[in-house]
Design a protein around this nucleic acid. Sequence first.
DNA 1: GAGGGGGACTCAGAAATATACCA
DNA 2: GTGGTATATTTCTGAGTCCCCCT
Length: 763
Amino acid sequence: MGDTQTSSKDKEVKAKESKDKGFGKEEFRAGGDVSKSKKVQRNSTLGNTEGAEKEGKGISRKKKEKLTKRENPDADLEDFVRAAQIQVKVEPEEEDFCINKKDKVKKRLREQEEPGGSLLESAKKKKKVKMEVEEAEQEPEKQRKKKKESKVKKAKKEQEGRPVSAREGGKHKKSKEEVEAAKALKIKKKEEEELQRWRWWEEEKYEDGIKWKFLEHRGPWFPAEYQRLPDNVKFYYDGKLVTLSSAAEEVAVFFAQMLDHEYTTKEVFRNNFFSDWRKEMTLEEKMIITDLNKCDFSEIYKMHKEKVEARKNQGKEEKQKTKDANQKLLEEYGYCTLDHHRERIGNFKIEPPGLFRGRGDHPKQGMLKKRIQPEDVIINCSKDSKIPQPPLGHQWKEVRCDNTVTWLASWTENVQGLCKYVMLNANSKLKGEKDWEKYEIARKLKSCVETIRTQYQADLKSKQMGIRQRAVALYFIDKLALRAGNEKEEGETADTVGCCSLRVEHISLHPELDGEKYVVEFDFLGKDCIRYYNKVPVEKAVFKNLKLFMEDKQPGDDLFDRLNTAMLNKHLHSLMAGLTAKVFRTYNASITLQQQLKELTNALDNIPEKILSYNRANRAVAILCNHQRAPPKTFEQSMANLQAKIDNRKEQLSLAKKELKQAKKDAKDHADDKLLANVFMLHAKETVDKCPWKMNCISLQMLNRTANCQLTSCSCMALLYSNRPTAVRECRKMEVSLEKIYNKTQRDKFAWAIDMTESDFVF
DNA sequence: GAGGGGGACTCAGAAATATACCA
DNA sequence: GTGGTATATTTCTGAGTCCCCCT
């Protein structure tokens, strides 16, 4: 893989360099007055920016050293990153295949017309065949080995004169008929589910902007009101007992419940909490409680821990009760009727009050998230639907009927003043349609991406600084899948950036680094305060432009001072309808997935190997998109456990080898007891055969887990960006059951892709 | 017409919960 | 079969993007 990439990358760089010949700083300066234009107001339009004075923007900001930067990824992961970046440029060779909705509908209609086969019947047949294939696929070595094991056991028992019965230890074993019946029931349930599925992708779409014609729901569910602490749980201030008012006590409980968390050690969190807590206190309480450090929440904390522990140790019955209650709640509030179809609601519960958990160094972390009342909630539903009833004694803020939006209820939260929505689940029509649309736009980009690249390459030499900045930003978005980088209000959120909001301090230029020319080193905090660290060789023209953009600027100044996301997207719109910076992320993730799957998968591999390849392909996408997570707390322990398992197997293997040798000898020596000797021989041989295979499995597991340690879940990646039809196509081509790659929720979510994708689909 | 603000949506990581696996 | 642990899945909600409307 590496060789092809390197060579293609070299070619690319050389080709670009030859294009760049003759392009230099002097020529650029002659084209536009850069020294003047550097002081241009950031938001000026591209056309009239030259020479204007920069105002207010690019004020030097303190580099926030305390931000929770993630550790540098491992060196091999960095290599993988580079590899993945190069992948982005490699285009697949196959012809485009377009999902043809009309053809699909026609196909189904044909099936419907076929004699002796209704639509439902044909779907049933199709499903049955599919399931039979999958079942056969799932009958692997494991089951064969189980059978073999049971045979050995049976032989042993018979040898010992013990009876082999269906009942052992008095436990009822399912009869063959019962097993068959359970199987049939499962299949039937699956079929019914499939038949009930709303195949919205086969229906006509509504006119532009209309999201639904009928919407009915029960309104959101509200968390229970606060219950006072039991009398034996006390709060102390400066060693003295203080009985808090209900409002102050509730907020104190929020804090006490978080005492285990790092948040409560952060100064900003503590200050914000204390300030908001005091707002909930009575005058008397305010007079007494003046210093958070003197507050003793230990009894509340202890009570909370005990509650958590008790919940963990609930008996079966209690657990079932809780489960049933949740199910009831879901049935009652978790579904709505949208255009005569029952659709699951994604978040029907109103967010409970608590302390705001802003990420990184969010300036508002620790502030009180107030309890939402029905009076804060706007309900959206059909006029002719049954209007949801507010909880007793309350009323809604407003009931409206707006079928141009997809939300069912909304409210404004108090911390950031943002709107929150109750929306449908990911497997709903409304979400699915959007998803489908997203991939269609990304596919459309494929057909014109080369033109766009040619255009921004040319723009790198533009006389206008703004256009050059736009070209460099686009180059990064395309090559590195950076996010657009909207402007944010200073002091309102954590100091994170995207492409357009990069500052001088976020990049370092290296004319030469580790044997590569024109290397740009990125180091900034992106979305969710996830660190983006990358060293990327770029084209000479890009490098020179960056050098120019950074001249006479302070570290805290904007790198692209004449560009913002609105300008960038406006330009992208002019190149292709519906194109925005975000589309490049989807596009490049899809291309990378397809390319990686093509390179890594081998039709001759076994199923675990194919799954590993699929995970590797997804990992490449995760690296490209810089999807990271904190390493799981149990990571080190679980790796040690796996290593212990391998060691154990090694011992087992050497023992089994000795046993096998002995058993062979015994079989020769004791011809009279051949059966017993054979049983032992079989057993030892099986262990000898099995151990290396198991050890290999554990090694693969370790490899997979190490690589995944700081990356988001692989299937998650495939769901977010990578093209669903691509993954579906690959599974079918490689004869890997979709169940092995995606869980039920995920399969439900992109049922449209599963249904529409043929095995020859190409992104 | 520009641009600022906010509404509506997607994306994404952490936490909670369920399930699988193993001794 | 049981209990403990690891892993997978789901839920929750914060953090982005993008577009439209108002001034």
